[in-house]
Design a protein around this nucleic acid. Structure first.
Lengths: 138, 138
DNA sequence: CTTTGCACTTGCATAATGCAAGCAAAATTA
DNA sequence: TAATTTTGCTTGCATTATGCAAGTGCAAAG
């Protein structure tokens, strides 16, 4: 299920073994925008991930220390997922993906607006957003 | 084989549909380091990609405008693969992957050296390397 | 003119993905 | 309190992708 042995010691390869698929970074994206999500929240995202795939990705992301599960305050039926620091550290990467995609694909308006913010002061944007996320988990 | 219909208009999702797998970015990595590679060069990389997977990834990367095939000067038996501008534009993303991985995984020494360069002046590093790549395709 | 190198293809076994349905515990409603 | 709904998954099964090994066709070298 998860990766058993490393293909190589290349950092790109190691990273891809953790989140190199079509779904994992979408989960990270949702958590970056919402700060915390329930299982159901992820299912509501536009890409319509299958429930079994979602469960398996959440598990490997947790096993790899990128997200954590915790109790929902106020409901034992719900589970809260949040980014760890390791997950928050994916923010610069996510920003670059957005910037790349902006150049070659059509984006929705709200994302364009966010990116114009980013382009004004990339470092500042990342620092602020990372801080917001950090506060939400501490 | 390739992606037929978009899952959503999210740039992260669109990007993942192009290179969101365990192999595509390794091909891009090889091209960023070597500027141009033959089919055999890719096979020599440490991760030991299977020949059929390599062929299929090269095809979808080409279909998506990230790499180009061209004749090898001096041998009709060989084929040269190179990054397009769209592929070169993945450089900032690749740099961030390296920086993220550096924080959480062990890297080989030569890559560490490169990253200490990056950390001195990220923008400068990217600009210089992107320019080198650009020159090699023009 | 035979052998080797190169860029793939093909066949087949195994693994991952996707869809629909099911299920147990908690929460809500009646 | 009993019935219904919500929530977070799991299960079964069909489809697709991956991985391995062997094979093919053309170019080049000997």
């Amino acid at each position: 299920m998860a990766d058993s042995k490393k293909r190589s010691d290349c950092p790109i390869s190691s990273s891809l073994e953790v989140w190199g698929d079509k779904w994992s970074l979408l989960i990270v994206r949702d958590l970056m925008f919402a700060k915390q999500c329930t299982y159901g929240d992820f299912l509501k995202s536009g890409e319509k991930i299958a429930t079994n795939i979602l469960a398996s990705r959440l598990q490997t992301l947790e096993e790899n220390g990128i997200i954590t599960k915790s109790d929902h305050p106020g409901s034992k039926a719900k589970v809260l997922y949040q980014l760890t620091q390791k997950g928050i550290d994916l923010l610069p990467l996510m920003v670059e993906i957005n910037l790349w995609a902006e150049k070659y694909y059509d984006l929705p308006e709200d994302r364009k607006a966010m990116l114009s913010e980013v382009k004004k002061d990339k470092e500042g944007f990342i620092k602020k957003m990372a801080n917001d996320l950090k506060e939400s988990i501490s």
